[in-house]
Computed example of a mutant assay.
Amino acid sequence: MKIVFAGPSIHGLDNALLAACEMRPPAGCGDVLRAVVAGADAIGLIDGVFESERSVWHKEMLFALASGVRVMGAASIGALRAAECQAFGMEGIGAIFEQYRSGERICDADVALAHAPAELGYVPLTEALVDIEPVIARLAAEDWLGADEAKALLAAARHIHFKQRTWNAVLDAADFDETRRAELLHARRSFGLSQKQRDASEMIAAISSSEPLVHMDLHTFEFSRTAFFDQLQRQTPLKDPAQC
């Protein structure tokens, strides 16, 4: 059983891509633990909750890995956890993971965005910085933006809180006129999938395959149970939510 936790990062992707996995909502604390107990042999982490609920623990990743489960991460909180747990065998996928792994990107808020609830398909309502920055770079590379314009857009995007960071808000903050706004928004729409969507697609394709994505020379580790993990295990209802 291959279980993938995702929400806004896969909005708009072809449903055929998702068919090989059991898709579940963004992961919260206890969800990966529950998936292991339910019998998952592979777990993909893309999106997760934060602020409103407790986030998925690193300890859950280690528990899954120590239990022989293949664990992969990409695009959003999955990229963060993969960078943090790579030494223990978690596989990271995509450009966003590579940025965190290398230290090029260090702020976990860069993947954050606001989105609609499950009933509305987790449609993104704001833009993550990890999606805005490569678009600005591509606009500059294709001569849609001058150097000063690109600098102004980057500064605006990095200054705006993720709950208010939309393209319109960024263009407003950078003081672009209506003509330039229309040109840039048109160019941006022509670029297709966002970086999060591309990384999520790559991870889902990889986890759907029976072959490991990478061959890593890992140090074996012994899972160390703690009082906090034992408490989480006691407090987490282990019934498979798909059967509820």
Score class of each variant (00 low, 15 high):
186 H>K: 15
36 V>R: 15
20 A>C: 10
189 R>I: 01
114 A>L: 12
13 L>V: 07
72 M>H: 10
56 V>G: 05
72 M>C: 08
49 V>C: 07
128 A>C: 10
131 D>H: 03
29 C>I: 09
9 S>R: 02
83 A>L: 05
185 L>W: 14
29 C>R: 15
16 A>T: 01
46 I>S: 02
167 W>M: 11
163 K>D: 09
5 F>D: 00
223 F>W: 12
91 E>C: 01
219 H>E: 14
188 R>H: 11
76 S>W: 01
117 P>H: 01
72 M>T: 11
98 E>Q: 14
55 S>G: 07
87 A>H: 13
172 D>W: 01
84 E>P: 05
47 D>V: 14
192 G>H: 09
22 E>H: 09
26 P>W: 13
17 L>S: 05
225 R>D: 14
31 D>F: 02
134 P>F: 01
124 P>S: 12
48 G>K: 06
106 I>D: 08
205 A>Y: 04
110 D>I: 03
243 Q>V: 15
192 G>V: 05
130 V>T: 09
219 H>Y: 14
119 E>C: 12
41 D>A: 10
197 Q>K: 00
161 H>E: 13
240 D>S: 01
98 E>L: 05
29 C>V: 08
79 A>S: 13
223 F>D: 03
87 A>G: 10
108 D>G: 12
194 S>Q: 02
21 C>F: 03
163 K>T: 15
21 C>E: 09
72 M>K: 06
2 K>A: 02
135 V>C: 15
30 G>V: 00
108 D>F: 09
48 G>C: 13
107 C>W: 13
176 F>K: 04
190 S>A: 13
140 A>K: 15
125 L>C: 08
84 E>C: 03
22 E>R: 09
194 S>I: 04
39 G>V: 09
130 V>L: 08
82 A>D: 08
64 A>Y: 06
66 A>Q: 01
191 F>C: 08
45 L>E: 06
244 C>K: 12
98 E>R: 11
91 E>K: 00
244 C>S: 12
236 T>R: 11
224 S>N: 11
126 T>D: 03
188 R>K: 15
145 L>V: 04
19 A>Y: 02
169 A>F: 07
30 G>F: 00
35 A>R: 04
112 A>D: 07
133 E>T: 15
25 P>Q: 11
220 T>L: 13
189 R>A: 11
66 A>G: 10
44 G>A: 09
83 A>N: 06
64 A>D: 04
47 D>W: 13
159 H>R: 08
144 W>C: 11
99 Q>Y: 08
3 I>W: 03
113 L>A: 12
83 A>S: 10
84 E>N: 01
18 L>W: 12
52 S>H: 15
104 E>Y: 12
113 L>R: 08
87 A>N: 14
63 F>C: 08
123 V>R: 15
226 T>D: 08
132 I>K: 07
63 F>E: 10
73 G>T: 03
4 V>S: 09
194 S>F: 02
88 F>V: 03
43 I>R: 04
56 V>C: 10
24 R>P: 06
78 G>T: 05
3 I>Y: 03
223 F>Y: 12
145 L>T: 04
32 V>Y: 10
59 K>V: 04
122 Y>K: 05
223 F>I: 04
38 A>N: 04
64 A>I: 05
